Measured scan of single mutants.
Amino acid sequence: MGFKLLSKLLVYLTASIMAIASPLAFSVDSSGEYPTVSEIPVGEVRLYQIADGVWSHIATQSFDGAVYPSNGLIVRDGDELLLIDTAWGAKNTAALLAEIEKQIGLPVTRAVSTHFHDDRVGGVDVLRAAGVATYASPSTRRLAEVEGNEIPTHSLEGLSSSGDAVRFGPVELFYPGAAHSTDNLIVYVPSASVLYGGCAIYELSRTSAGNVADADLAEWPTSIERIQQHYPEAQFVIPGHGLPGGLDLLKHTTNVVKAHTNRSVVE
């Protein structure tokens, strides 16, 4: 069995187990497998329904001669939608809004960016022009300005110390501490036991640490421990890039980060 097929099978099995364990909360999309990078042309966006009122959005972007996937989250909030992270750029984010209108038909009224990198804030200006209120932590807003990236308009308070959590509509926002970046936030959907790890969490097929220019490698494993301790009931975990899975993604990420750190020390 090929690795790609095995990865998709694991996603399907995880979703099936969740649907059985929580039949009222989960209505997993039966329309197909989780979209992969090879299936999404740059400039297009796919939506994948995880649970009743919960979707991931998947886009792709060219970077350094390669094409990478990027995940975000959409959560229903009454007759409105909360968006977590842009679709990595203005063109993708405009396509995301169009796809949401086509498939869901509810307005996106608020959006949260989970850290300051372009795959999370690139497209904020498109959201703002569409009347979406954009939010991020003060740290993310400051770092985005320093980096020359787009800056969300509103500040999220109460997320300055490791372990801080605040309720934001249908989700809980959690600051686990520094990891992929010093400002990275985690998003949890309690009604569906869905954990969105953003770039602080890796997919299972990833074996290298990737972009760690703004990471705190020493603190990252401790931050992941905080996530595990705060959300032990999480059933569906979405990484910032690639295929979702279960809580095993947290341990896998820790292993990859520690291996990278150990290699760096040896070198």
Rank of each mutant, 00 (worst) to 15 (best):
M1E: 04
M1Q: 04
L5W: 12
L5Y: 08
L5S: 07
L6K: 05
L6E: 07
S7P: 09
L9Y: 08
L13Q: 06
T14M: 11
T14D: 10
T14C: 12
I20C: 10
A21W: 12
P23Y: 09
F26N: 05
S30C: 10
P35S: 14
P35G: 11
T36Q: 10
T36P: 06
V37Q: 13
V42G: 10
G43Q: 11
E44W: 11
V45L: 14
R46P: 04
Y48W: 09
Y48S: 13
W55I: 03
I58R: 09
T60L: 14
Q61D: 05
S62W: 07
S62H: 15
S62A: 12
D64I: 14
D64K: 15
G65K: 13
G65N: 15
A66D: 09
Y68V: 12
S70D: 02
L73V: 08
L73Q: 02
D77L: 04
D77T: 08
D79W: 12
E80N: 15
L81C: 05
L82V: 13
L82E: 03
L82I: 11
L83H: 00
L83F: 03
L83Y: 01
T86P: 03
N92A: 11
T93E: 00
A94R: 12
A94S: 12
A95Y: 11
L97K: 00
I100H: 00
I100N: 02
K102M: 15
K102R: 11
Q103W: 11
G105F: 15
G105M: 08
L106K: 11
P107A: 13
R110A: 15
A111K: 03
V112E: 03
S113K: 04
T114I: 00
F116D: 03
H117S: 00
H117F: 00
D118F: 06
V121A: 03
V121M: 04
G122E: 09
V126C: 05
R128H: 14
A129S: 09
A129F: 05
A130C: 07
A130D: 06
G131Q: 10
A133H: 15
T134E: 03
T134Q: 00
R141V: 09
R141P: 03
A144S: 12
E145P: 04
V146W: 13
V146C: 14
P152F: 05
P152V: 05
H154N: 04
L156N: 02
L156M: 11
L159I: 11
L159Q: 00
S160N: 13
S162W: 13
S162Q: 15
D164H: 11
A165C: 08
A165L: 14
R167P: 06
F168Y: 09
F168E: 02
F168G: 02
G169L: 03
G169K: 03
P170W: 04
V171D: 02
E172Q: 14
L173R: 01
F174P: 02
Y175V: 04
Y175H: 05
A178D: 08
A178M: 12
H180K: 00
S181C: 01
S181F: 01
T182E: 12
D183C: 00
L185R: 02
L185F: 04
Y188G: 01
V189G: 01
S191E: 08
V194P: 00
Y196Q: 02
G197K: 02
G197N: 04
G197M: 01
L204T: 11
S205G: 10
V212P: 13
D214I: 09
A215Q: 05
D216N: 08
L217W: 15
A218R: 10
A218M: 05
W220I: 00
P221R: 12
P221A: 08
E225R: 11
R226H: 14
I227A: 12
Y231N: 04
P232S: 09
E233Y: 12
A234L: 12
F236Q: 15
I238H: 02
I238A: 01
G240K: 03
H241K: 00
H241P: 01
G242N: 03
G242W: 03
G246S: 06
D248T: 14
L249T: 03
L250R: 01
T254R: 10
V256N: 04
V257S: 02
A259K: 14
A259C: 10
H260C: 08
H260A: 08
S264F: 06
V266P: 11
E267I: 09
E267A: 07
